[in-house]
Design a protein around this nucleic acid. Sequence first.
DNA 1: TTTAACATACCAACTAGTCGGTATGTTAAA
DNA 2: TTTAACATACCGACTAGTTGGTATGTTAAA
Lengths: 204, 204
Amino acid sequence: MNKKPTTTRTKIMDAAQSIILDHGFGGTTVDAIIEQAGVSKGAFFHYFSSKAELGKMLVQRYADEDAEHLEQTLVKAEGLSDDPLQQMLIFVKLFEQEIKSLEEPFPGCLFASYLQQSELFDHNILDIIRESMLLWRTRVLDKLQKIEQKYPPRRDVDLESLADMLMVIFEGSFVLSQSLNENKIIAQQLLNYHRYLQLLFSKD
Amino acid sequence: MNKKPTTTRTKIMDAAQSIILDHGFGGTTVDAIIEQAGVSKGAFFHYFSSKAELGKMLVQRYADEDAEHLEQTLVKAEGLSDDPLQQMLIFVKLFEQEIKSLEEPFPGCLFASYLQQSELFDHNILDIIRESMLLWRTRVLDKLQKIEQKYPPRRDVDLESLADMLMVIFEGSFVLSQSLNENKIIAQQLLNYHRYLQLLFSKD
DNA sequence: TTTAACATACCAACTAGTCGGTATGTTAAA
DNA sequence: TTTAACATACCGACTAGTTGGTATGTTAAA
């Protein structure tokens, strides 16, 4: 199996990600990274040809984990109900619970961090982020279309923007919770999205 | 009236803000700022004792403009209806229209930019941002409470989180629209918020 | 003549990245 | 089974260039 030996490589990446989420990529030095990771400069450049390459490997890893997390949560929700609306509502609830179960403040989103400094990165890096967001759009939109067929919405809605809204709420609440030091904001906003879906599709 | 003589001071601040929104504060050099502003280094340090002080003056100005914009839009909405629900719906629509009327892509939010690199700034700077967000919460919450008195909501809602949701949607759509290069996302999401309010409070 | 508003030249600290070197394997021919 | 050849994983001093900031002008208006 794929064991987790905490290799030097992952130690560097973990340290870098945590510092970048607090200082931004441009405000993060490789000296700071290697100090936190407890490795030498030689080790750093043995594994990464440049700071920029580390930046790319970081989003790549983040995007992969994000996609896997998305699929797993989707599968989980689909396993708990046969009805598409219920699946979607459970899907949102699962994220809500996950956030609530965190004891530490949410560390932030690497995508948003990079996007706030987009000129520091080349296009293929920004494309990775773009693809990740389009994946969310596609997967959620697919579910919403199945809901729409079964439950005619109370109002005319653009399903694509309704799909986007989930990620919008994630990213937006990360910003608010970061500023106000209130972790519960994220869960509260997910609940608002949940309620909005209910009001749109549920006959009460 | 308040004329705009484009002083050296504001030229520096405008250049700095535009660069910071693309590169982040840590990725922005004062050389880059003075080049874009077309002024010398002497001029820069004549007006700002340090890069950090410029950073503070920038958020301060941004927060002041933000607060004024909030109040003005609120006053405008209140002038267009006597009913609190209608006022709130108009309030959201005004922002929607404003965004739609932009021809260039939205430049981004300085608050979010700073928050993504919060460790680069000291607490009084982050407090300015915090206060700005609390102002939005307070002003919108006030309106929502008046709505609630007149229109019993269809579902039990936490009004504070519903107030926060507006800023959440702003910040979240800025992120999405930045990544997907779709300016319309912001207006679409504001429309979703608008619809959510209607579904909650309007008897249809 | 004084002073605010700049400009130019420069500095010390820091930054990303390099380089020569070592320690510890792995492999495969003798 | 020994051993020479090679590979991988690291170390930390060093460098060339960049950075925020300063010191010392100049100029034009009050």
